[in-house]
């Protein structure tokens, strides 16, 4: 593992909450503008690699009345969609029994991707699969796109079509740091710190396991874009320790800071950990009803909304490549 201190992860991909809000807002705004201009928001990748919005619906001007025009997703709805597909991502990775590291890498790719783009511009299902595919490639657990596609009954072509766009959007910063290794390290350290005796090892094991589950939850929030992996790990260990009561956690935090002669104060560190906890508490999974509503909106943003339009679209897609027709099918699924 290259050094985190000098890594692109630390220097480029840890943001302030305000920066995150602005990025989400900017992507959302851009998609809304595209919707107003072209009547649809889904980006198409052309053969020359340029990205474009689709043709404006020829009747866009005729039917300019407010009811038929597709309504864009708002920022909260975009957030819901990300949450939904991040859960899907974990599900897929679990089905394939991929190591935690791959799941975490794919999740971070997915989060970073949608800092650059609106959900309305790139289909989150396809991007999610491409993120998993890319994470496998980077983490040396190569799985062919075909294999991956087959395992979840998806057209693997969609995975490959988006691969370059994903790497580009990640600015080729593909080495990411997941908190799982940090947890392992801290648990080893705690073992020494507490001078754990053999008969107490089961308690450490329990602490470790719960922390891993806690950090799984943290990984689904925006916290990985806001805090370094070490702090995510400590937050999960602190929560876990509240369940198991293995050690005086504040004393342990103090000992880390003093050993590392860190510039951070204990109160800063505790504040960060509490902020991470609050991201987990505020985490909201969309209801069925929300999802239905958002999906309907999304489909209309992608030009698939009303019956008329979707028929038109289907006709058009017949002339198009296999690839785009598959895309259409999958979008509707």
């Amino acid at each position: 593992m290259a050094d985190f201190q000098t890594s692109t992860h630390r220097t480029k991909w840890i943001f302030t909450p305000q920066e995150l809000v602005e990025k989400y807002k900017a992507a959302n705004q851009r998609a809304i503008q595209a919707l107003e201009k072209y009547g649809a928001t889904l980006m198409e990748v052309d053969i020359d690699g340029s990205l474009s919005y689709p043709e404006p619906q020829t009747n866009a001007k005729d039917t300019a009345d407010k009811h038929s025009r597709p309504k864009p997703l708002n920022i909260e709805e975009e957030q819901y969609m990300r949450v939904f597909y991040e859960n899907k991502l974990q599900e897929v990775c679990n089905n394939f029994h991929f190591p935690h590291k791959i799941q975490a890498t794919a999740l971070i790719y997915f989060k970073r991707f949608y800092l650059q783009w609106s959900i309305m511009e790139h289909h989150p299902k396809n991007i999610m699969l491409t993120c998993i595919y890319g994470a496998c490639k980077i983490e040396e657990n190569h799985v062919s796109a075909e294999e991956l596609g087959k395992g979840i009954s998806q057209d693997h072509q969609l995975i490959l079509n988006n691969e370059m766009i994903v790497y580009q959007s990640l600015e080729f910063d593909l080495i990411v740091y997941a908190p799982y290794r940090s947890i392992d390290g801290f648990v080893n350290d705690i073992e020494e710190f507490c001078q754990t005796k053999d008969d107490q090892l089961h308690m450490l094991k329990a602490l470790h396991e719960t922390a891993r589950m806690e950090v799984d939850k943290i990984m689904l929030t925006d916290a990985p874009l806001l805090f370094p992996p070490g702090q995510l790990a400590l937050a999960s260990l602190r929560s876990s320790n509240e369940v198991h009561g293995v050690l005086d956690f504040e004393r342990y935090l103090r000992s880390i800071l003093s050993r590392q002669s860190s510039a951070h104060t204990i109160s800063e560190l505790i504040e960060s950990l509490s902020a991470i906890d609050s991201w987990v508490r505020r985490y909201k999974f969309p209801s069925e009803k929300d999802l239905k509503h958002i999906n309907r909106k999304l489909r209309s943003c992608w030009g698939l909304g009303s019956h008329d339009e979707s028929k038109k679209r289907e006709k058009k897609s017949k002339h198009k490549s296999k690839k785009s027709s598959n895309e259409t099918q999958n979008m509707q699924s």
Partner: peptide, 19 residues
Amino acid sequence: SWDSKMGDGNSGSNRTLSG
């Protein structure tokens, strides 16, 4: 399939966002 996509009347007049 890519060629046919290219040959599709649509893509020619797309509003390309960049280079």
